[in-house]
C-alpha cells in the first residue's frame, strides 16, 4: 500500500486521503482567464504542489509530489509546519 505522511496524523495509508488537485496559478475571479482556470489544470510531468485531505480528521494540507515517479517529497499544513515523507 502506498503511504502518505499527514502533517497532523503522521504516516497513513493513501486510501485514507482525498486528492483535491494541484495548487492553481490562475484565479477564478479573473474574468480574462476564467476558461483557463476551469479547464486548463496544471499537468506537469515532474514535481507538483497539490492539495490533499485526510478524510477521517478532515485535515487539508499541501504535498509536493513527482507526477512521473509518484514520489512524495514533503507535506505541510497551509500555515507552514512541515513533515518529510519517508
Amino acid at each position: 500500500m502506498k503511504r502518505l505522511t499527514c502533517p497532523m496524523n503522521g504516516v497513513r495509508d493513501i486510501s485514507e486521503f482525498q486528492y483535491l488537485g494541484p495548487v492553481r496559478r490562475t484565479r477564478p475571479d479573473d474574468a480574462d482567464a476564467v476558461t483557463r482556470h476551469l479547464f486548463y489544470i496544471e499537468n506537469p510531468v515532474g514535481p507538483m504542489i497539490e492539495w490533499w485531505r485526510h478524510r477521517p480528521s478532515n485535515t487539508v494540507f499541501l504535498a509536493e509530489r513527482h507526477t512521473g515517479t509518484d514520489e512524495i517529497f514533503r507535506t505541510w499544513l497551509p500555515d507552514g509546519s512541515e513533515q518529510q515523507n519517508d
Binding site: Y19, G21, P22, V45, M48, E50, T67, G68, T69
Partner: peptide, 9 residues
C-alpha cells in the same frame, strides 16, 4: 488512480 499521474507503473 484517483490522482494525477504520468506513470506506467
Amino acid at each position: 488512480d484517483p490522482y494525477q499521474l504520468a506513470s506506467t507503473r
